[in-house]
Design a protein around this nucleic acid. Sequence first.
DNA 1: GACAAACGCGAGTGGTCGCTCGCATTCTGG
DNA 2: CCAGAATGCGAGCGACCACTCGCGTTTGTC
Lengths: 217, 217
Amino acid sequence: MSDTSEKERPEKGQPRRRQARGERRIAQLLAAAAQVFCTTGYTAASTNAIAREAGVSPGTLYQFFPNKEAIAIELGERLVHEMREAYGEALAPVAPATPLEEAVGAAVDRFMAFNTEHPVFFALMHGPDMPGGITEAHDQLHATLVGRIEGLLASLMPGASPADVTRTAHVCLGIYKAGLELVLAHEGAERAAYVQEVKDVLVRYLGPLVGDRLGRT
Amino acid sequence: MSDTSEKERPEKGQPRRRQARGERRIAQLLAAAAQVFCTTGYTAASTNAIAREAGVSPGTLYQFFPNKEAIAIELGERLVHEMREAYGEALAPVAPATPLEEAVGAAVDRFMAFNTEHPVFFALMHGPDMPGGITEAHDQLHATLVGRIEGLLASLMPGASPADVTRTAHVCLGIYKAGLELVLAHEGAERAAYVQEVKDVLVRYLGPLVGDRLGRT
DNA sequence: GACAAACGCGAGTGGTCGCTCGCATTCTGG
DNA sequence: CCAGAATGCGAGCGACCACTCGCGTTTGTC
């Protein structure tokens, strides 16, 4: 019943005990993969290129990842884990008296900060060339985000049908993703201006829907 | 000096006289390529798969196209040609007294009709996995569209700086592309509802910018 | 009908890529 | 210090893919 004491995974056939060196190599390889995925996309990225970027041999790469897809999966999982922390704070606490502009502005700022800090995320989610496993994970995350937005909108749009709320949530996310693409394509002041545009689009889109509740006076 | 009489292209080394059969095969191959590109994307699409879809041999395909990229290029050029006709009418004539809602609604309807009729277009423009030549053509078209929208906005936003107009045009196009993705992902009534949402987003976004000029009373 | 050119085929070629294998090196527990 | 495991290597294997080549068939022209 009780294991020895160290980290063990009785569920998997091979627990694959790692040394500290191994964990370092994994982080190194994931960073290299992020770099390569960002510049060339997933399909065009070769495992040999990732290994070269990390400064190791192809064989070493396959010591830690069973195949190319697993690299992207693991990278995605770590990003989602990081994101859940940032987004839990970004979307969950919708104070009842918060003006719409503030709520949208804060959420957009948090999302934009995360995405500009981890451009791989956009590359992985946006590519239409992902194999099954990644698309699956992406859809799951997408559904989670839409659910969160639905939760916020439901309290703002009391008279709307569930289908309307869902549709509105999808539109909001679509607007954000389109804005993100524009934001990532610019730098400095221009980038900040585009961030403001995204906020404006969302506020003006949602303003009439939420009625007088949280809209502008 | 004088050529025989038939159609000849002195500019190119090989005029490559075509028979009617050849033109038919080209159309057939482009249709097959559109189908395959739509389902698998450009990079994942194999030339052998395109030839199989068209019911011909790989050798026959290469009788009419020098390489895989040329297929996408030619397909893109024909689509752009078709689009220019539809879009010339969709964007050019901005009647001075047209309400904003009508102008946006008409433009969105035309664009959506074209894109739902030719889903390949979205697949080719949206993929981040295209080789140089296609990206180049895409950027050119993108710039053309932005220029058109800028022209429309310039007359609606007299007080705005050129940079503001350009940014607004990019945002409009981004909104449209995001909406297109949502529209293509749904069918029937849901699709129509999303089309309406796109119009609403654009009208509410542009409304405050154009002032009292063409906005709602 | 005869000649040439366009068309059509499909096995084959060179190259790339994901991934493996055998072996050397480094770490860890006893 | 010494088995044994984890780590590291890089040449190489099999598969796939864009593309070619030689040869047979159809079509247009005189």
